[in-house]
Design a protein around this nucleic acid. Structure first.
Lengths: 152, 152
DNA sequence: GTTGAAAAGTGCTGCGA
DNA sequence: TCGCAGCACTTTTCAAC
């Protein structure tokens, strides 16, 4: 597993990150190589772990998930971060968990059905986890930007 | 544009959210409908805006983006949120922007190459935007969970 | 709205340079 | 190692139910 990404790899990633549905043959034409080459490169990048797959983008509110929130979690002194993460893994409403610098020990992104659901997840799930001292909630009223990093 | 999603739509979304690379014909078999139906439903869902497309998942650190940070932004009283968002849009390092409750006016997720790059984006870009009073930075040392919501 | 099959295009594998 | 060509498969479309 060696992370040696050349210019062609980056070009391919850049184009596919803009539009995954684009055909390999189409990308091949733009980059002046054969379709097979794109395939080989993508296979290599996937094996290397650079590409982790693809994801369907679904509008959360359209499937009944209207509330997005960030939770700053304070852990008790001496509690094991790893154990807490394992517990958090079991909560499906958690979509992101970061170990952060600053006043919080960890920082969590949640997606819930409504405020009642959010309250339930907070009180009955997150705050019940051993090691969690207290939490601070930021509710997202509007997600104005949501995109991927632009490489190169 | 009417958001009427039936059980079949949800089943399709659920399966595709788990694995986008799966063939329509394969899903059709599992749900006991024809391949054409899956296609028609997905087209409908896309036109309705429920499905926003698909995204290639790339390991940021493999393409040279090692630092992920969250920035809490305090806006000056009376400044226009919309204008500030427009300015933020122009910063490619910003991958998410939320209008939130709590002490911050807005909350931003950034992905940068290194700490030097992060500092540059903060000082030379974000803090230069009109209306931005001050910012608070949380650096993610480790992203322990990163996934999508589980529907149904 | 769903079905089933036919047509067009894509991804994949083996061969050659 | 990289590029090219054929094969298998999928997506897509369309007429009929």
């Amino acid at each position: 597993m060696n992370y040696e990404i050349d210019k062609l790899d980056k070009e391919i990633l850049k184009l596919l990150m803009e539009d995954v549905t684009r055909a390999y043959t189409d990308i091949a034409k733009e980059l002046n190589v054969s379709g097979g080459t794109i395939h080989v490169r993508m296979k290599k990048l996937t094996e290397m772990g650079v590409v982790k797959g693809a994801q369907l983008l679904v509008n959360p509110s359209a499937v009944g998930f209207d509330v997005c929130a960030f939770i700053g979690v304070y852990l008790e002194k001496g509690s094991e971060y790893k154990d807490t993460v394992t517990q958090m893994q079991k909560i499906p409403e958690i979509v992101e968990l970061h170990y952060t610098t600053g006043s919080y020990s960890m920082f969590v992104k949640l997606v819930c059905r409504d405020t009642k659901h959010l309250r339930q997840v907070l009180n009955e799930k997150i705050q019940e986890i051993e090691g969690v001292q207290r939490t601070e909630t930021l509710i997202s009223l509007e997600e104005s930007i949501s995109r991927q990093i632009t490489i190169e």
